[in-house]
């Protein structure tokens, strides 16, 4: 997908919980509170993936949410970046080999998705902000490739 130069200004974020224990979700919300404040970068949580530039996935993909996660990913307009938050989303974490779990998120998404992994259980808000910084550096690199 084509990335424009202005893509990393004021990213709008949509948060998808595909079966997590909610700890990472609470930490995501904590990072917009005044103490850690990502809103000063213009990053805000939006209510529909149609408005979003970044998708935040938390939790392993369980069998019931598999199709829904794919739908939300496809309904987000290009260009988009996926941030995979937490140990459960990148590997299945404590839910390893459970009967209800389908697998980590990156097995589901198509090959050309731009993925950023943020680790932790639960992810600290500072780590999320670090993840945002990594995302900016990654995007610069991607744009460098595209010239």
């Amino acid at each position: 997908m084509e990335l424009s130069k202005t893509f990393d200004k004021s990213l709008w974020v949509f948060h998808v919980n595909s079966g997590s224990c909610n700890a990472c979700d609470i930490e995501i919300v904590a990072s917009v509170t005044p103490r850690y404040d990502v809103e000063r970068f213009g990053i805000k949580l939006v209510g529909t993936p149609r408005h979003a530039d970044v998708l935040l996935f938390t939790g392993p993909v369980i069998k019931k949410t598999k199709e829904r996660v794919l739908r939300v990913y496809e309904q987000t307009p290009d260009p988009k970046v996926v941030m995979i938050i937490g140990n459960c989303a990148s590997t299945t974490g404590v839910y390893y080999d459970s009967y209800a779990v389908e697998g980590p998120i990156d097995t589901l998404l198509p090959d050309d998705a731009n993925l950023i992994y943020v680790n932790g259980c639960p992810v600290r808000p500072e780590n999320i902000i670090n993840g945002v910084k990594e995302a900016w550096l990654y995007l610069e690199e991607l744009r460098g490739d595209q010239g």
């Binding site: 529909t48 149609r50 199709e67 829904r68 496809e74 309904q75 290009d78």
Partner: peptide
């Protein structure tokens, strides 16, 4: 405009929190 539009299976459906 942006020419990298790709049609995928669910892209044009209305957003109903991921439900069909």
């Amino acid at each position: 405009g942006n020419h990298s539009y790709k049609e995928t299976k669910y892209k044009r459906e209305p957003f109903l929190s991921g439900n069909s």
